[in-house]
Each structure stands twice: as C-alpha cells, then as structure tokens.
Simulated scan of single mutants.
Amino acid sequence: MSTISFAIVGCGHIANKHIEAIRNIPNATLAAVCDTNPERLKEYADTHHVRGYLSLEEMLEKETELDAVSICTPSGLHAPLAVQAAQAKKHVVVEKPIALTLEDADRIIQACKDNGVKLSVVHPNRFRPAVMELKKFKDRGLFGKLSHVNATVRWNRNQAYYDQAPWRGTKALDGGVLMNQAIHNLDLMYWLTGPVEEVQAYNATRLRDIEAEDVSVAVLRFKDGTLGIIEAAATIYPKNYEESLSIFGETGTAVISGRTANWIKHLIFEGVSEEETARVIEQVEQDPFGTPGHQHIIADMADAIREDREPLVTGQDGRNALQLVLTVYEAAEKHAPVKWGESKELVSSQQ
C-alpha cells in the first residue's frame, strides 16, 4: 500500500489535530508545515521533525513528492490557499467551514475539479459513534415521515477565547457561533434531513465584544416539509453545557446529546425491539468518542487517493453547510424568510 504524503498550511491550534491524525494512520506521513509566522513555524517544524516553509508557493515548489495539503488557516484565507494547492495538483483537505462565502467555496470546488484532485472538508462529527448509529437507522427508513428536527449548541466561548487572535470573531476571517461551532450540527442536520426550502432567523451579539454573532436562533422548512429548529450560543455561563441533535418522526424518535453530542439519550422505533435499541445505546456508551473524527477524515482522504474515489465528506457537503449558515445570516439581516434558491449568496446551481 502506497504511503500518502501530507503537508499542513497554518500552524495554529487545529493543525495539531491534523498532525496527530496523520501520525496515527498507517501508510501516511507528514512531510512539511507552512506558516507565515517564523517563530510559530520553527516551533512546529522542530517539534514534529519536518521541513518548514514561510510560503505555500515555496513549499509546493520544493515538495515535489507531496500528495495532499491540509488547509488549517483562518477561514477567510481558505480559498486562495486551497486553489493554489489544487493548481499544483495536490489533493486538498480544508478545515471547516470550507470558506466564508459561496463564491470562495465554488472557487475551491472548481479548482479541484479542473485539476483532477480530491477535496474533503473537515466535518468530523459525522464519524462520532452515536451519529453513525443514527445514520444507520435513518437509512433504514425507521423514522417514517419526519415532523421536525432540532440542532442545539449551548456552549461557552468567553472573551479571552476571542482575544487570543485579532481575527477571531471577525466577519472577514472567522465568523461567529454559527460559522465556527454550530456549523458541525448544521452539517449533520442537512446530511440527515435533506435539502432546505426556507429559513427564518434572528442573530445577536449579546455578550462578546466581536463583530459576528454570539447567539442565533433559526427555523427551517425542508423541501419535504420537515421543520427544523437551530439554537446556537457561545454565551452559556460558565462553561459548555449541551450539544444535541434530535430527530422526530412518525415511527421513530432519536436524541443524541451531552456536553458534546456523543451519547444517545433516547432511541425508539416502531417494530424495533427495546433489546436492539438498548444494545446500540450501550455499545455507544462503551466508547462514545471512538476514533477521532480528524483521523477518519485524513484516513479517508488517503484511501480516496489510493482508490481514486470521492472522499466521504466532499466539497459539496462543505458548501451545503456553509450555505445553510449564510442563509441564516441573510434571513436574520432581512428580518424576513429567505428561500434557499433565492439567497443573495447563491452563486452556483449545485444543490
């Protein structure tokens, strides 16, 4: 089995998760790191015993055997770097969100398509054991006709968190609680429930000194008539309280929650024995975190390269989650419902 060579662009906090994932995957190797901050670059290069570069251009020029690049920079910088990597014929793993605008998301998707390289977006919550079990029940059709779904993030990101770097909480480079924390839940909601028809929303910046929102509530109508509720907050005192995802259907109910949505709190289906659902709940409780989601994403990219197939979490998946966040933003700004296909951010026919 061939070894897949990765490089990291952006040596911030999230890069550590990528590096750990690469180190824990057989037949994958970390070849280089890149960052515009010389001190931070030296720290990462020395710690991980790899070559370091101050520019992506230099790294792509010198690392000729490189297979894939992980983009771990602030979100507003994803597009130019991902496009540059794709144009150098390198496969691309990009941290969430894929970008901050649909125009930039489409630039990334098109560049990867034009250059024949794979693209995966880091939405690791799909690989939580509880979520994977929920997806199995959904794929079996056991919920029947859905009535509504609910995604909740009640977390704490205090002012010190935003003060760590000047780009945090800015609209140009970062975004707020929807774009940073709740986008994972929105990805799961879209993935499990399907295309959105219309969004109504309120956003506010209540407690943090940032440009973007620290709390948001939204109501969705999906194309099949299912209703959805989003509640996202970075304002919970004094620490993270709850993350949950709930699905309510004609013949089934499921709720996963906890401080992070790693535990199945309620699971019942018509025609499914209590013994079977209890077994699933117990199995998840024995290992609620499972293999880290970043490791799933990186391992899947390596396999996708070897097998010449699409990654499990595609650029379009990342785009869908981004569009949902942006449509919530627009509905809140307009104080009016926004149709999915009429969003001012919609610049692609991809659905």
Results as ranks from 00 to 15, higher is better:
residue 28 A to T: 12
residue 17 K to T: 13
residue 188 L to P: 00
residue 88 A to F: 10
residue 44 Y to I: 05
residue 173 L to Y: 15
residue 208 R to Q: 08
residue 129 P to A: 02
residue 337 P to G: 10
residue 134 L to C: 10
residue 203 N to W: 07
residue 12 G to W: 11
residue 112 C to S: 06
residue 123 H to M: 15
residue 86 A to Y: 08
residue 232 A to S: 14
residue 61 E to S: 14
residue 267 L to M: 15
residue 178 L to K: 01
residue 126 R to A: 06
residue 255 V to Q: 11
residue 74 P to H: 12
residue 208 R to N: 08
residue 303 D to V: 04
residue 79 A to R: 04
residue 56 L to T: 01
residue 12 G to M: 08
residue 135 K to D: 04
residue 55 S to A: 09
residue 11 C to N: 08
residue 130 A to N: 07
residue 18 H to P: 07
residue 336 A to L: 03
residue 220 L to V: 05
residue 184 H to G: 09
residue 130 A to L: 05
residue 297 I to W: 11
residue 184 H to M: 07
residue 100 L to T: 10
residue 110 Q to I: 12
residue 29 T to P: 14
residue 58 E to G: 09
residue 310 E to W: 12
residue 3 T to F: 02
residue 190 Y to M: 11
residue 105 A to Q: 00
residue 215 V to N: 04
residue 217 V to T: 09
residue 337 P to W: 07
residue 282 E to T: 15
residue 143 F to E: 00
residue 208 R to F: 01
residue 54 L to D: 05
residue 279 R to E: 13
residue 91 H to E: 05
residue 238 P to K: 10
residue 109 I to C: 06
residue 86 A to P: 02
residue 45 A to M: 06
residue 209 D to L: 05
residue 327 T to M: 09
residue 94 V to M: 06
residue 208 R to S: 03
residue 249 G to M: 08
residue 8 I to H: 04
residue 49 H to R: 10
residue 39 E to A: 10
residue 297 I to V: 11
residue 265 K to W: 12
residue 90 K to H: 11
residue 304 A to M: 05
residue 255 V to W: 04
residue 1 M to A: 06
residue 67 D to S: 11
residue 46 D to K: 07
residue 18 H to E: 10
residue 240 N to W: 06
residue 298 I to K: 03
residue 131 V to K: 07
residue 227 L to T: 11
residue 277 T to K: 09
residue 33 V to R: 04
residue 108 I to R: 02
residue 55 S to Y: 09
residue 29 T to A: 15
residue 183 I to F: 05
residue 27 N to I: 13
residue 308 D to H: 08
residue 110 Q to W: 13
residue 232 A to W: 00
residue 272 V to G: 00
residue 276 E to L: 11
